[in-house]
Computed example of a mutant assay.
Amino acid sequence: MSSEQMVHMNRGQGETSYAQNSSLQNAAQNRMRSLIEEAIADLCSTSTLLPSRSMVVADLGCSSGPNALVLVSIAVDAIQSHCLRYQQQPLAEICVLLNDLPDNDFNVVVKSLVAFQQSHKSIVAGIVPGSFYGRLFCSDSLHLVCSSNSLHWLSKAPDELKRNRIPAYDIDEHVRRERRTIVLGAYARQFGKDFTQFLELRAKELVPGGRMVVSLAGRRSEEPASKYTHAWESVAQILSEMASKGVINRGKFESFYIPIYGPSDEGLRDIIQSEGSFSIRELQVHEPTSDNTLITPSRMANMLRAGFEPIIIQHFGPAETIMDKFVSTAERRWSLQGSLQEELAANPRVILVVSLTKKV
């Protein structure tokens, strides 16, 4: 991740923390359960993949809070259940590795990891800080890689937009519509570069025949990309209103780029096939699990704050009230009956889940 932008979720356990506002992300993780279990069954059934009777499982972009151990817990339970079901000797050891950027709240993660080790025998665990757009592990050392709700975060915002001073989200709606294709194209190209690099690096780190199961925010291929500007549309709209009213500096808003892109399922498939290191076992497209009618303006505002506060504060300055104004602006926007549901319906997003096998 670019050093210019400090990307991490809100720390701690408070009301505005990611830990208290991550139920949607947990639902996305549970969508991965069957594919992780299938990957484990495949690995355990192929004796050549486990010559030392040990397995290494890595979660990339683990974040913090209650979701940090969900994916590795699914994997460990699946390993133990498989051995029991087929009366196989339990693996000698399972190594669990958790990764995220250095600014992640690893203090909370480590405490959870210690408790996890105490309740699961033969578990070796470790923390690996760093960007998953760089090398993280030794060659041919991993058996299973998981990642949930992380890979739509880019290594950086598109340089071409910054270089040409093209705002990611124009306050002027007419100009925004005219530039939408340019902006989307720049973000799509950056995602293509980043995801290709991610695949190349993981191909070096996974054993031959190793498995990978990842999920990320995206859109359906049949939904025209021209309708959307960003996966972070709601954040942009709130900040745009704040800039229009002078709450935040308009110039700073026009130079604000959140490094997120939600690809289509076909776009994701094309990148994987073009890179060539992996075969696609399955690619699923899921609607968000939560019913939009149950998401209140206050809950939605807090979820956005938990995910975007650090990067907003870094760009606009450490004003103590800026995020309080962000929340109040959001709640005011959505105070009319049906307005929040209408906004969510106008910007439909899906969860893409893909299961991959490293080619031998």
Rank of each mutant, 00 (worst) to 15 (best):
M1S: 02
S2D: 07
H8N: 13
N10H: 11
T16C: 08
Y18D: 14
N21Q: 10
A27Q: 13
Q29V: 02
N30V: 11
C44V: 09
C44E: 07
C44M: 15
S45N: 10
T46K: 15
R53F: 01
R53K: 14
S54H: 13
S54C: 15
V57H: 00
I74W: 06
Q80L: 09
C83S: 09
Y86T: 15
L91T: 12
A92V: 05
I94L: 08
L98R: 13
P102E: 09
V110M: 08
K111E: 12
S112N: 15
V114L: 14
A115H: 07
Q118D: 09
S119L: 12
S122Q: 13
I123H: 03
V128T: 08
F132V: 11
G134A: 11
G134D: 06
G134H: 11
R135N: 12
L136C: 06
F137I: 02
C138K: 10
S139K: 15
H143C: 11
V145M: 07
C146H: 10
S147L: 01
N149F: 12
L151C: 02
W153Y: 05
W153R: 11
A157C: 11
D159H: 01
E160L: 09
I166L: 11
I166A: 08
A168G: 15
D172L: 04
H174M: 14
R180I: 03
T181G: 10
V183F: 09
V183E: 04
G185I: 05
A186M: 12
A188I: 01
R189G: 04
D194S: 09
F195C: 07
E200R: 13
E200A: 15
L201E: 04
R202C: 08
A203S: 12
K204E: 05
P208S: 14
G210I: 05
R211A: 08
M212K: 08
V213N: 06
S215E: 02
L216K: 05
A217F: 14
A217R: 12
G218S: 07
R219V: 06
P224W: 02
A225R: 15
S226V: 07
H230L: 02
S234G: 14
L239E: 02
S240T: 01
K245Y: 12
G246Y: 01
I248V: 11
N249M: 03
K252F: 00
F253V: 03
I258Q: 04
I258R: 08
G262I: 03
S264D: 09
S264G: 15
E266I: 02
E266P: 09
Q273P: 05
E275H: 13
L283Y: 13
L283P: 04
Q284E: 08
H286N: 14
S290N: 12
S290Y: 03
D291K: 14
D291E: 06
M300Y: 09
A301G: 02
N302D: 13
L304D: 00
A306Q: 07
Q314F: 02
Q314H: 04
Q314R: 12
Q314G: 01
H315P: 01
F316I: 00
P318W: 12
A319L: 04
E320H: 10
T321K: 15
T321M: 11
M323R: 09
K325G: 02
T329V: 03
A330I: 00
E331C: 10
E331P: 09
R333F: 03
W334E: 08
S335I: 08
E342P: 08
N347P: 04
R349S: 06
I351R: 10
L352P: 06
S355I: 00
